[in-house]
């Protein structure tokens, strides 16, 4: 593979344990220039931990992480809740990462399709808008590598596909590598170059269509598909309470119902 020479970031033999319980064992992973690598795996598979090790937020017990010298990383965390006591308009939130001119901020917000929230309090934007704002903050760093942890969480199903298409467009226009974590291969299959199927160790890796037929992938996702969908729908409901509206609002119940409904549709479509 040509990946060896061009890798933006590479982890070798990464291992991490908590209280003697391994969370990651012998994980190898690399992202090349302009490559989209998606890590998928069940809950507790160590997906976020792997990202955090690669980002240098967690020190691994074993293994090494090497980055191409002076590689710039834009990071979109899985969960970010701005304390409701902090009055912070979206444009100020964006400028926290890199002090940029107002024009640069609006241009980037435009690119991610969230220009209309530029002056809104960050706590008042919807789940989908918030993810786009987070993406804008990562983009403002003019990154060589985008690291996205569950980028579509808290976004309704139609919006999820839009967001993945946007990420793909960004890869094309900025020429940056993308490393992302997702719970759902179906959503990312079209855009991804390499899938890494993780369950504490790397079960299988390769092009998405290859991975989908891999016995290790089927063992991990095939057998538990039914329950996985149930877990997904439930988890997602819950996320909406928090992230769909960063600060829970009065239309809470209504929003919850609405989204739950969407998810049943989604589950149905996946089966059909």
């Amino acid at each position: 593979m040509t990946v060896v020479d061009t890798a933006l970031i590479r982890g070798r033999g990464l291992g991490k344990s908590f209280d003697g319980r391994p969370v990651l064992e012998g994980v190898d992973l690399a992202v090349a220039e302009s490559e989209i690598v998606t890590v998928i795996g069940p809950n507790g598979a160590g997906k976020s931990m792997l990202l955090r090790i690669l980002l240098g937020l967690v020190t691994p017990d074993r293994g090494t992480v090497t980055r191409r010298p002076s590689v710039r990383i834009g990071y979109m965390p899985q969960k970010l809740i701005v304390d409701p006591t902090l009055p912070l308009p979206v444009h100020r939130f964006l400028a926290l990462g890199t002090p940029e001119s107002p024009e640069a901020l609006t241009a980037t917000l435009d690119e991610v399709g969230a220009r209309h929230v530029v002056d809104s309090p960050i706590q008042a934007v919807s789940g989908g808008e918030f993810q786009r704002v987070l993406l804008a903050r990562a983009l403002l760093r003019d990154p060589d590598l985008l690291v996205l942890d569950e980028p579509v969480q808290g976004v309704d199903v139609g919006g999820q596909e839009d967001l993945f298409r946007l990420i793909c467009r960004i890869r094309d226009s900025h020429g940056c590598g993308v490393l992302m974590v997702s719970h759902d291969l179906h959503l990312v299959v079209a855009e991804t170059d390499t899938v890494v199927c993780l369950n504490r160790h790397v079960c299988c890796t390769g092009r998405p269509e290859v991975v989908q037929g891999d016995p290790a992938y089927l063992a991990l996702f095939g057998a538990t598909a039914a329950s996985a969908i149930a877990v997904y729908a439930h988890r997602h409901d819950h996320e909406h309470d928090d992230a769909g509206r960063v600060k829970p609002a009065h239309d809470h119940d209504h929003a919850g119902h609405d989204h739950a409904h969407h998810h049943h549709d989604h589950a149905g479509r996946r089966h059909g």
Binding site: L55, L57, P77, L80, V82, A95
Partner: peptide, 17 residues
């Protein structure tokens, strides 16, 4: 002011930045 605000909003994002 700005770095302190960034760390206040999210420490991990600030560290990666």
């Amino acid at each position: 002011w700005r770095p302190l605000l960034a760390v206040t909003v999210d420490e991990e994002l600030a560290q990666v930045e």
